[in-house]
Amino acid sequence: MTETGKLVKLILSGDAQAFETLIEEHKPLVSHVVFRMIPNPQDREDISQEVFIKVYQNLSDFRFEAKLSTWIAQIAYNLAINYLRQKKMISLDDLELADDSEGHLVAENIQPDKKVEEKDISQRLKTEIDNLPVQFRVIVTLFHLDQMSYNEIGKILNLPEGTVKSYLFRARKLLKDRLLSKYQVEDIWQ
């Protein structure tokens, strides 16, 4: 039996320590998804808690068809999407990005800002990621921070692999273009 299998078995038998281990192992992944999607800092912790509560309550239904991390991230993504829908912070259009949406996204916020210092770039990038459509944000985060594959990300967002790849490319191009045009970082990035 794999380590994950043993951990799941222990949790199902009521081992609290095993559940704490699962939380500690998957806390970064859940925080990446939830913090990237939820703008309100007060709600982030509550939603992250809700994710692990769902995990605990439904662990017996986990069939090992996907990685445990993929399953947990899927719960986190769906809970965050439900929250955004309830708060009317997201519409169907935000989830089904039209082909012309890239043009719209490039055109906005294109006014050059003051020159930035190297140490500012991380903060500017964080701001620009927050301005991306929600799916772009999650895809960039899962790919670069959590080293997930297109296939795993596709399972989490319920998107085909090709769409994940295309959104990832578009997101990075948007980020690069915005950082160059808005903050004039080319001197630092030469």
């Binding site: 559940f19 704490e20 939380i23 912790e45 992250s48 509560i53 991380s122 990038l125 964080k126 950082l179």
Partner: peptide, 22 residues
């Protein structure tokens, strides 16, 4: 851009997060 994207974004849950849940 790639080296910036892998930097820790500093998303931190409270230190007693796991203990509270357990």
């Amino acid at each position: 851009l790639y080296s910036e994207l892998i930097r820790d974004p500093g998303f931190k849950l409270s230190t007693d997060f796991a203990r509270n849940l357990v």
